[in-house]
Design a protein around this nucleic acid. Sequence first.
DNA 1: ACATAAATGATATAACATTACACATCAACC
DNA 2: GGTTGATGTGTAATGTTATATCATTTATGT
Lengths: 159, 159
Amino acid sequence: MQNDHFQPHDHARCISTALDAAERFCAAQGLRLTPVRKRTLEILLSEHRALGAYDILAKLDADGFGSQPPVAYRALDFLTANGFAHKVEALNAYVACTHPGAEHAPAFLICRSCGVVEEAEAAPDKGPLARAAREAGFAIERAVVEAQGTCPACRSAHP
Amino acid sequence: MQNDHFQPHDHARCISTALDAAERFCAAQGLRLTPVRKRTLEILLSEHRALGAYDILAKLDADGFGSQPPVAYRALDFLTANGFAHKVEALNAYVACTHPGAEHAPAFLICRSCGVVEEAEAAPDKGPLARAAREAGFAIERAVVEAQGTCPACRSAHP
DNA sequence: ACATAAATGATATAACATTACACATCAACC
DNA sequence: GGTTGATGTGTAATGTTATATCATTTATGT
Ligand SMILES: [Zn+2]
Ligand SMILES: [Zn+2]
Ligand SMILES: [Zn+2]
Ligand SMILES: [Zn+2]
């Protein structure tokens, strides 16, 4: 794994890299990274945790944006549609993407103890699921791959 | 794949096999497959689709059981805790298990068109996710593996 | 029969998400 | 520069999924 966000790391770099990638991508594609959208991405980027839509909404409201659910959901729709964030289905929560820009099928390692969500590559054409799909003649369009467990940092802290 | 529930099949056999397995397992483990729980399992078994908790609740209510959400959620908790049913996270809905009794890590193929959910084995120690987890030193406790796409029956119907 | 534990009934509330409509902003064109 | 249509935002209302709590009933073991 090239990055391991369970361990201490230069997180300011995570933030600036992702923000920068989003800005470039939007400029290149003619997408509008408006203030609410950018702020929502910044909120998600602040930690490697999944945040609920209403947590995000509260922060947006505090920052002077709207206070109603669609404010958060619309920004999240934009971010997820363009690959800057993902929804973690097992948590009904949202996390910033750590592989921004590139097309990819995300998989997640979710620590139950500290809440950190690490993104990995799902490799949709490999693994047991892909094999089952081929055998059944099933055409996969989207895959949700989310593992819950304990990260190395938490395990060494509570042995 | 030994079973393929996207195709027509002897579904009465699916039902009786699963119900029978649940009854045996409960008898062997001293678990109580009470009327609400059994009826909930029958409702889930009626189709190879995922049903929302409130859909189930409506049927339980119609059958003279309680009408309040905990009635359905408690029955679903029992069924999922004992492996007779699973929650499909991507749909916030529940499906009967087709591998009842045995310990297993389920994976799902979900057809967007007809709604059929086929259960496969996730093989939690294989595949890209398991590899990423090993590299990160992450201990997986539970895995959510759900593929959405189109089944062979729907693809041949709408080519 | 009694004590204990497990399950159920019922009320309320929390958490997550969408629809609908009015208004503002922006880009493109004349 | 003003018009126009498309896109984005603010807000109210509502829909959907899930849990907390407490009283009551039912099963279990002695
Ligand atoms: Zn970081
Ligand atoms: Zn952790
Ligand atoms: Zn069947
Ligand atoms: Zn289908």
